[in-house]
Design a protein around this nucleic acid. Structure first.
Length: 601
DNA sequence: GCCGTTTTCGGCCCGACTGTTTTCAGTCG
């Protein structure tokens, strides 16, 4: 349901008008994902209409069936095979074909027009579903969140049959916290909250096993909520411990085997306690992703089994197959090698012949692209080097800003040479337990030229080139600009290639396919900027880019000593992208790195 | 609205939890 709500939000009002105009005037066929969104919208709208729940389910089921279909939609329609998909009957065939061919659907337009947009927004309030929203609308004439707040404050909701004082209070709290609750959270911050809870759970004597599931376990860059899965024969005591954590703002559900809590940041956490024999299945199910689970269930069905969080059943007899004590065994029951959680995104991981070897943090020998007090950092060369040594690194790269980044106290030519000198003296001194490479984070100016003289860049060990200005250029201009910088002989690495700030700033327009090809052709490294708010370049692009030969560097972009530890977030992304260690510069020793800087091999 | 079929319509995934009601409806995942 959460997904259906999101879909409505996505295609509501103006957005839908844009999609419609796009397909109406472009003579393009509507793509599969837009049709899936519309089917999900219809399901939500029907819910608000108080329609037959099975009809509603038929629409969301149809959306899922369409989404899971791997073949080309145009071909399937042309060959008249749409109706043979399970979950898509004659009515949906008609609607999907109409949408595909015209981009429009009168049934949908009429349905949308009959429902106040405010009602869809009301579904975002926890505890309110289609039926309750309909009741609030029918009984009290409520058509917006604002109106709902007013009737709650007047006590009218509590007087409604089926509601009560508690429901009214919950709605008011839900309205007040709506922005927070809808938020996603950076993996790094969510992990900080989750780790002590997981450790606490594991320390309880009643707990056999405990894991964190969901997108946190899959190492997604942002996380919606936390899912803890625990194996135990005594759920009561675990529930008690979980719901009495002092970091909790609110307990939103507390049952015998399932509880939900909310932290001050708005982050929600669910805990499920299952018997030990179900643990592997529950952990796998709640780790997801949804797409991965769909693919797994399809594979099971093809072998005569039905897979769920409870276990693996024989379809013909409905009897449980022999259990699995681990996820590895679960995968093996379906003839698969164990797929690491971070690869479970429904992106063809079931079809991989061999699982890629994923790197680990202890293979990282050092990091590049970090700042000192010379520009906008908060620690000196010595302090940063000591912090790097404390992390057991063999080397540290320092890359302060160049002069165009005036706001960051960027270095001009003279200051660059002074810093090179300081780093040289540091490396020669007794206090250096690790080697410091002298680098720069040089601005790529708006025309693609570089912010420092060639002779200055050549005096450095390496140079990271980054865009820090003119973000609103067209995709064509930006792509050309960045590729020009990549083609400069002094360029060692490209910094944060899209400039995105997660949950805050969209990436700038850039054709990364072309950028990747140019980087490969020029032996230029693209970084994984490991700042938890960036994680740029995105993991979704890495598998294919690495297969084509792109080199990677994991760069914490640290502005203080603590920031060096962000490299762990970059390791997560390299794992998720399946980048092999041979193509990660940080996995090489100091001499090999120096060699790469010299001749790029 | 889909499916399967005893072909013309009945059943549809389901368990956990909350709140309101006192046996159940609605929400959530």
């Amino acid at each position: 349901m959460a997904q259906a709500k999101a879909a409505v939000w996505k295609t509501s009002n103006n957005a839908y008008a844009c999609i419609l105009a796009y397909y109406t005037y472009s003579r393009l066929y509507m793509n599969k994902n837009d049709i899936v969104d519309i089917l999900e919208d219809i399901a939500v709208l029907l819910e608000l209409k108080g329609e037959n729940p099975f009809k509603i389910r038929a629409y969301s089921g149809g959306a899922r069936a369409l989404e899971a279909m791997e073949e080309n939609l145009g071909e399937v329609i042309a060959e008249d095979r749409l109706g043979s998909l399970k979950g898509i009957g004659s009515a949906l065939v008609d609607k999907i074909q109409t949408l595909y061919a015209t981009g429009e659907l009168a049934y949908y337009t009429k349905l949308r027009d009959s429902i106040a947009p405010g009602l869809i927004e009301m579904l975002e309030i926890p505890g309110l579903g289609g039926k309750k929203v309909k009741k609030l609308h029918d009984a009290l004439g409520v058509e917006s969140v604002d109106a709902l707040q007013k009737v709650c404050e007047l006590g009218k909701v509590a007087a409604l049959k089926g509601f009560g004082a508690k429901s009214q209070e919950k709605i008011l709290i839900g309205i007040a916290n709506r922005a927070n609750y809808a938020k996603r959270h950076l993996w790094w911050k969510a992990h900080d909250i989750a780790r002590p809870i997981l450790e606490g759970l594991r320390a309880l004597p009643e707990v056999d096993r405990a894991e964190i599931a969901g997108s946190l376990r899959r190492l997604k860059e942002t996380v919606g909520d936390l899912d803890f899965i625990v194996a135990s024969a005594e759920p009561e005591k675990i529930m008690e411990w979980f719901t009495e954590q002092d970091t909790i703002q609110e307990v939103t559900a507390r049952g015998a085997t399932k509880s939900s809590i909310r932290f001050e940041s708005g982050l929600q956490a669910d805990l499920r306690v299952v018997p030990s024999e179900q643990f592997a299945f529950a952990l796998h199910h709640f780790t997801g992703s949804k797409e991965h689970n769909v693919a797994m269930r399809q594979r099971a069905l093809a072998q005569g089994f039905s897979l769920s969080e409870w276990g693996l059943k024989e379809v013909s007899t409905q009897e449980l197959v022999v259990g699995a004590s681990s996820e590895e065994e679960l995968f093996s029951l379906l003839g698969l090698p164990e797929i690491p959680p971070e690869l479970r995104e429904g992106m063809g991981e079931l079809e991989l012949n061999a699982m890629p070897e994923l790197i680990s943090s202890d293979q990282i020998r050092g990091v590049f692209h970090n700042h000192t007090t010379a520009s906008d950092g908060h620690a000196s060369i010595e302090e940063m080097a000591q912090a790097a040594a404390d992390l057991n690194f063999d080397y540290l790269g320092l890359a302060d800003h160049s002069k165009a980044s005036f706001q960051a106290n960027g270095l001009d030519e003279a200051r660059v040479f002074r810093q090179i000198d300081e780093i040289f003296r540091f490396n020669e001194s007794d206090q250096s337990s690790i080697h410091v490479f002298s680098g720069i984070e040089c601005d790529i100016l708006s025309d693609g030229s570089l912010d420092l003289e060639d002779s200055t860049l050549e005096a450095l060990d390496y140079a990271v080139m980054s865009v820090h200005s003119s973000f609103s250029q067209s995709q064509e201009e930006m792509t050309k600009r960045v590729i020009r910088a990549i083609e400069h002989p002094a360029t060692t690495m490209l910094g944060h290639p899209t400039g995105r700030i997660l949950l805050r700033r969209e990436p700038y327009q850039i054709d990364l396919e072309k950028v990747i090809d140019a980087a490969i052709a020029n032996r230029v490294i693209i970084e994984i900027n490991a700042n938890p708010s960036r994680l740029d370049m995105d993991w979704r692009l890495w598998r294919r880019a690495a297969e084509k030969g792109l080199m990677c560097a994991i760069n914490p972009d640290a502005h203080n000593t603590e920031g060096l530890s962000y490299f762990e977030a970059g390791v997560n992304i390299a794992r998720k992208g399946g980048v092999p260690k041979e193509q990660i510069l940080n996995c090489r020793d100091c001499a090999a790195v120096a060699k790469w800087f010299k001749d790029r091999s």
